[in-house]
Design a protein around this nucleic acid. Structure first.
Lengths: 260, 260
DNA sequence: GGACGGCGTTGCAACATCTGCAACACCCAT
DNA sequence: ATGGGTGTTGCAGATGTTGCAACGCCGTCC
């Protein structure tokens, strides 16, 4: 809708592919060098673009900071986090939280281990949408038509022999997930890693996020992992309750009251 | 330099603080609602802004994807990565890689453990600049004047009793680091975590990145960690050589040839 | 139930801003 | 020196952007 801004923003994905100099940017944008220069300058002032020593431009640090802040201000995440930590402390495996947004599913939180070194996961990484348990949960909740549309448009890479092969299989899987209210990924992304997940509902009943527990089968077999399902579902339900406001977050026994 | 783009980009940090509706955005920008609407629309088309169900705007997913791609295209990172993995496989502890950019130091890579589950760290997270070993290494290399200017401008939060207390102490520490060619963070950020780091040099001798090894002192004491210093420095040097092109990356025994 | 107020949205005309041009400054290589 | 390759600047013209006012919509309050 705004040509100038549109052009400026088009520079970002362009630079995401690698550094480029002024001429290249101007060419790719189809504008004069001087215009490209002014756009880049503006982007630079805002820190979205960085000028390296060879004068070429690349994406800047502010971008990270923004993505950072963005993810920290998601309220589902804020509410869910203590529950995820609590679950992690009980079962020890990696716990993920993910949301769906405009065709992509991405992780917005992760608790890796109860180890004193608390380090965050590569949050923001798009999920393998055709196989991940959280992706299935989030897409399964879409209205029929949209679900089908999305399924048709996806690629179905065969990460492993157990990856979802095509749209038909995926839709069938989504139907199952939708009905049973939980999902798995048994070696569909990486042969040795299994995953179980449960949906988090908002006040209107729609799925707003999904969580999962992942573990390599050298640690627990798929069967053992499945025995944890009730705990995962209870946690997801506890988060849902708190998120939808059904659970008055009493100042005292707040949060992890119900997710054990 | 470009008013329109400038305004549009100003929306991003604004939304980073939390979701806002059209009116709020317009007010904060000091423009008419209709202009704000058009800017937001453009941002939305590029996926930088997302419109939630209550019609309010917040930062969008593309932002993550961009930050993601950006970090993956840094050539230091690409070159360093296999070396970091190799080091990690030998010593087992967490290995970090960081760069300095416009006043911030941020992690651009991390190898957490040799565990089969390979998961990435919260890359892009700004580092505690006054205490982290990597930050000291990167800032120590700045020219005298700039170094002082940066040191004066910083805040010195006391994370622990061993945190760098003020600019004077920091500058002194930087001088030491500069001279000895390596750095530590012994409980300066979190009481129980120690850290040793070494610089990575470019062809011109300037420090382009820094790496570090971190471990909680329940696993190894600070003294034990320091015994790993030679290995860390050798790895950093190997990366430096390959990065500055001194080491012809022979197709065969490539990369991890020298960093043991 | 009707009117009000708030919010997002649209079309338009006036204007300011952005654009492309051409010339310049600079660096490196020839 | 001379040439080609950058990035940079000032300018006038024109395009795109702006703010306005009016509309549609949805809740709320009388």
């Amino acid at each position: 809708m705004s040509q100038t801004v549109d052009r400026a923003l088009s520079i970002l994905p362009l630079l995401a592919q690698g550094p480029a100099d002024l001429g290249q940017v101007a060419d790719r944008l189809g504008v004069h060098k001087s215009t490209a220069l002014r756009l880049l300058r503006t982007l630079h002032e805002h820190g979205l673009v960085y000028r390296q020593e060879d004068q070429r431009y690349r994406l800047g640090a502010r971008l990270f900071a923004l993505a950072q802040e963005a993810v920290e201000n998601l309220d589902v995440r804020e509410i869910a986090h203590p529950h995820l930590v609590a679950l992690n402390e009980r079962i020890g495996h990696t716990v993920h939280l993910a949301v769906h947004e405009e065709g992509e599913v991405l992780y917005i939180d992760k608790v890796e281990s109860r180890y004193p070194v608390r380090m965050y996961s590569r949050i923001g990484k798009p999920v393998a949408i055709t196989v991940a348990a959280v992706a299935k949960l989030l897409l399964a909740d879409l209205p029929e038509a949209e679900r089908r549309a999305v399924a048709e448009k996806l690629d179905y890479p065969t990460y492993t022999s157990r990856s979802t092969p095509n749209a038909a299989a995926f839709l069938k899987e989504l139907a199952t997930v939708r009905e049973q209210g939980w999902a798995t990924d048994l070696g569909g992304h990486e042969e040795s890693i299994n995953c179980i997940g449960a949906p988090i509902h908002g006040a209107d009943g729609r799925v707003v996020a999904a969580m999962s527990v992942s573990a390599p089968n050298v640690v627990v077999t798929a069967e053992e992992l499945l025995t944890l399902l009730p705990q995962v579902r209870r946690t997801a339900e506890a988060i849902s309750r708190e998120y939808s406001g059904t659970a008055p977050n009493t100042p005292s026994a707040q949060g992890s009251s119900d997710d054990r």
